[in-house]
Design a protein around this nucleic acid. Structure first.
Length: 581
RNA sequence: GGUCCCGUAGCUCAGUUGGAUAGAGCACCGGAUUCCUAAUCCGGGGGUCGCAGGUUCGAAUCCUGCCGGGAUCACCA
């Protein structure tokens, strides 16, 4: 028992009926049941739940869909959970649940509370979600925000649906750019010791955020580094600087409520010999060779040199061309480290490797998939999700960002201005592969246009009613409830929506699409606001009615069920529900 | 030129992994407040789902080819 999911419940009834048909010989024993869907119909007038079972299985049964539907419907009508079972269209079976079913659903929601929606469909699968993984050369900028929020919400979503999730950050601390970082910091170190360093030379990081790093270095080493040659000071300064940058990045992430469990250093892959080991293994399997790559098609680059290099046969596994493992200076490429990294992840037992990347890394996905295929042999899935750009606006005007290095909007500036909850929710109001506009003014507006506000307001309104209840009802606030009293169409629609929550989470998790949670919450909030206003025209629909304590208590319990859906959904997005506005 | 993503109402976007008559918000027009938060709600018009084929009981969804927009394209990360 993993919690109340009415569509699972109905599916079991449908499958039981199908087994009966199998026993009667009307349906082959090996009929494919996995293609059957049990879902809410698009049009509520068609009932509460619909299944395509008869259409999917008609061929196997050698019957017309509507005839098979007739057999199935006859069996389902015997179930007390259903009030009506009808055949419609080409062979849909539409079911309306009995009046007695809905109170049971609400009881279950209240009993499960904060756990409502949780499931074990992930079967404790070990999932590695790698996200952010920004270079440790400076603070996170706004471009990192979307991937950070998306990855974190996805990790929460997978956890909620029964996966064993590890949140991971890959530190690119082995390449040339961390050497550039070291030289940039060394300049700030000299500056801290009183030297006039003038303009920061092109090719180095000019940002002021390196000043305190240089100062800290001066405090730690005094003038001692000045006399050493670069070969000696560079590793020291580099390690020091990377550590400080990662501390900075962790602070930025913490401001957004993000905390990775594992920070994995690229350098350890080189130093531990893991890359050597991985390449030897590939060599044994004949997947590595020395050869030449064809020059890029279209216009060939000016500095293209045709040369022999060590290549991985990624084209055997779906990639367009084979990929180089070593650079011209003999050191390993970034790709070689990633091969070893994937091997490491597989050795740690992950069977699902999720990569949250910026859209500019789209060209990298095929080779990652190829590596995973080669190393796991298909026992693990690699899932890449690309996040499109976020465009910043302020009152409809684009926020200008000069291309001059160092002049960019940081993640921290955005979070500090509008708050982490707004940032997180807004980043999930579009599909990850669609571009997103973020307007500093609109996202803090208190209006229907602003989805964050709209959902939060629904939650706050519910809290407000619950606060007023004890005052208005007094001792009558406590006592039994009778959910069968909730008979208005607006109320019933909300109950159905509550019932969809676990299914929505499952679908979102399977598709790796946390934005679906955000859209669900907007729908739920809209239906709640509608009911609220209905109580203005029809006083008998108000939540608190002192002259009718039983109905009042029932509606308050109903509101708590709605609140659980709102709060649980927001929690997955990493947004704190507010109780007052 | 290759690869990947996108194309749905005037605008911004959903569309339950192939289902029934394609939905919401904004904008436009008209309404609702003695009363639990009007920071909200109700009603109205608005469509060649980029185009053309194919797959089948059934396509916005899957396949192929075009058109248009974006990203990317040896050794950097």
């Amino acid at each position: 028992m993993t919690g109340m999911n009415l569509f699972h419940h109905v599916r079991q009834k449908v499958e039981a009926a199908l087994r009966t048909l199998q026993q009667e010989g009307l349906l082959p024993a090996d009929a494919p049941l996995d293609r059957i869907t049990v879902e809410p119909p698009r049009d509520p007038a068609h009932g509460d739940v619909t299944t395509n079972a008869a259409m999917v299985l008609a061929r196997a049964a050698g019957m017309k869909p509507r005839d098979l539907a007739g057999k199935l419907a006859a069996l389902l009508r015997a179930e007390p959970d259903f009030k009506e079972v009808e055949i419609a269209g080409p062979g849909f079976i539409n079911m309306r649940l009995s009046d007695a079913f809905w109170p049971q659903l609400l009881d279950a929601v209240l009993a499960e509370g904060e756990a409502y929606g949780r499931s074990d469909i992930g079967r404790s699968e070990k999932v590695n979600v790698e996200y952010v993984s920004a270079n440790p050369t400076g603070p996170l900028h706004v471009g990192h925000t979307r991937g950070a929020v998306f990855g974190d919400a996805l990790a929460n979503l997978l956890e909620e649906t029964g996966h064993d999730v590890t949140r991971e950050y890959y530190i690119n601390d082995a390449g040339a750019q961390v050497d550039v970082l070291a030289r940039s910091v060394f300049l700030r170190y000299r500056e801290a010791l009183g030297e006039d360093i003038g303009e920061i030379p092109a090719g180095l990081y000019p940002g002021d955020y390196l000043k305190p790093v240089g100062a800290a270095l001066a405090e730690k080493y005094g003038r001692s580094l000045l006399e050493k040659p670069e070969e000696e000071w560079l590793p020291l300064v580099r390690d020091f600087a990377v550590e400080r940058m990662m501390a900075l990045i962790r602070e930025d992430l913490a401001a957004l409520g993000i905390e990775h469990e594992v920070f994995f250093s690229e350098r350890t892959l080189h130093e531990s010999g893991l890359i050597d080991e991985t390449i030897r293994e590939l060599e044994k399997r004949g997947l590595v060779y020395v050869g030449r790559l064809p020059p890029p098609k279209g216009k060939p680059p000016e500095d293209w040199e045709d040369r022999e290099q060590l290549l991985f046969r990624s084209s055997d596994f779906g990639d367009d061309i084979d990929r180089p493992l070593k650079k011209s200076d003999g050191s390993y490429t970034y790709f070689a480290a990633d091969v070893a990294y994937i091997r490491n992840k597989l050795e740690r037992g992950f069977t699902q490797l999720v990569y949250v990347l910026g859209a500019d890394h789209g060209g990298y996905v095929k080779r990652l998939e190829a590596v995973n295929k080669a190393l796991s042999g298909g026992s693990a899935r690699l899932i890449a999700r690309l996040c499109q750009l976020v465009k910043l606006y302020r009152g409809g005007e684009p926020v200008k960002m000069s291309k001059r290095a160092g002049d960019f909007v940081t993640l921290r500036q955005v979070v500090d201005e509008v708050g982490p909850d707004v940032v997180r929710f807004m980043m999930l109001t579009r599909r990850n592969d669609a571009p997103l506009d973020f307007d500093f003014e609109k996202v803090t507006e208190q209006s229907r246009d602003n989805p964050v506000f709209y959902v939060q307001y629904a939650h706050a309104r519910i809290c407000s009613v619950l606060r007023n209840a004890s005052e208005e009802l007094g001792a009558e606030a406590q006592g039994d409830v009778d959910f069968s009293l909730l008979s208005d169409e607006a109320e019933r629609q909300l109950i159905r929506r509550i019932g969809e929550y676990p299914r929505m989470l499952e679908q979102a998790a399977r598709a790796h699409e946390p934005h679906r949670v955000a859209f669900y919450l907007q729908d739920l909030a809209a239906e709640f606001h509608a009911l609220w206003n209905k109580g203005k025209e029809k006083p008998e629909l108000r939540f608190i009615m002192p002259e009718n304590p039983l109905l009042s208590r029932t509606r308050l319990a109903f509101l708590r069920a709605i609140r659980y859906c709102l709060a649980n959904g927001l929690r997955i997005l990493g947004v704190r529900p507010v109780e007052k506005m």
